[in-house]
């Protein structure tokens, strides 16, 4: 569904990503693992177009080339992006936040409505007119995912969804991701929390110093203690 080949990215003169290649399949959850600063967030930002991929990089989504396009074009093609640090619009209410994310329905998918989202994130339904700035961290994290879903994406990029959340909220997050997968969405998430990754993901890509060091299924990773020790410091 999403195929990244030879992705290179720079911040100014700093070469951040080196020939990153990965593939995400429909109905699967792919996790990007790696240390902070390894390049996971940059990979996601390059896919959604917030960081410009270097010449020669290829990012195809359903066979269509996305590299070099503007973020809004990529989002409209059906790629949803949920940033780390949440970045909800604190001055806007829950409903207005959702309205910003709204896009036309897509063929073959039941369009997301606030009502359907509230079924997955019940807390949000109880605070529809509350400004985003007056929500707790966990509630904001739910809102940022719901907001992206309003664009009816077919693949969703989740950058560090469990960071800074209490374990009990992280469990709710894992349940929500499982529900999205059941809806037929492809999910790519970046994580440091291996326990969380192991619970939700089907496949993993390990990134270290801006390059892919290992990829395979999660069960396969469990059998590679050396890989885990070398790149994940487990």
């Amino acid at each position: 569904m999403l195929t990244v080949t030879g992705l290179n990215a720079f911040y100014g003169r700093a070469h951040i990503l080196h020939d990153v290649s990965l593939e995400a399949r429909a109905g699967e959850v792919l996790v990007l693992l790696g240390r902070n600063g390894a390049g996971k967030s940059t990979t996601m930002k390059s896919i959604i177009g917030l960081v410009r991929p270097a010449q020669g990089s290829s990012i195809t989504f359903d066979g269509v080339e996305m590299a070099g396009r503007q973020p809004h074009e990529i989002a409209r093609a059906g790629l949803g992006y949920v940033p780390e640090e949440r970045r909800i619009f604190t001055d806007l209410t829950v409903m207005e936040n959702l309205a910003v994310g709204r896009q036309p329905p897509r063929d073959g998918l039941a369009p997301w409505t606030p009502e359907r989202l509230f079924a997955i994130f019940p807390n949000l339904g109880r605070m529809q007119d509350r400004p985003g700035g007056r929500m707790s961290g966990g509630e904001q994290q739910m809102l940022t995912i719901a907001r992206t879903l309003m664009g009816n994406p077919r693949l969703i990029l989740l950058d560090e969804p469990s960071e800074g959340l209490a374990p009990v909220i992280v469990e709710q997050m894992a349940d929500a991701i499982a529900k999205l997968k059941a809806e037929g969405l492809a999910v790519v998430l970046s994580e440091q929390n291996l326990h969380f990754a192991a619970r939700v993901a089907d496949a993993a890509v390990i990134i270290e110093k801006g390059a892919v060091r290992w990829q395979g299924t999660l069960p396969a990773l469990e059998n590679e203690p050396e890989v885990k020790a070398q790149y994940l410091s487990v």
Binding site: A166, P167, V168, E171
Partner: peptide
């Protein structure tokens, strides 16, 4: 806070 511990 801790929940069931499945993700921690």
């Amino acid at each position: 806070y801790l929940g069931a511990g499945t993700t921690s």
